[in-house]
Amino acid sequence: MTDITATDVANLIGELAPAPAAWVEAAQSLPALRASLDELVELCRSDLKVRARTLEDLERALGDAGVAPEPHVVRYVRLSLER
């Protein structure tokens, strides 16, 4: 890039504001979430009926498994089972 001005640089720095810290922490905690949900996901993968029932009402299925159905948990299980 040639003839870049200080204003150009300042504008580009300003384009990347930090994401909210809580969002970043939630994304960073995925490995811990995976460890806590591995058993449920594996069970769903090995039994199509359980998988279908779980996907039908994810929040209830998680509640039944003793897992708080928070949005990031629901998202993780849904995406894991869709793969």
């Binding site: 890039m1 040639t2 870049i4 200080a6 640089v9 504008n11």
Partner: peptide
């Protein structure tokens, strides 16, 4: 800020950033 910005601008000169990004 002005000194650091100039240092960064100098560092970036000649770098292959996307030209259309500079308005």
């Amino acid at each position: 800020i002005a000194r650091c910005l100039d240092k960064l601008r100098t560092h970036l000169e000649g770098k292959n950033l996307h030209d259309s990004a500079v308005r």
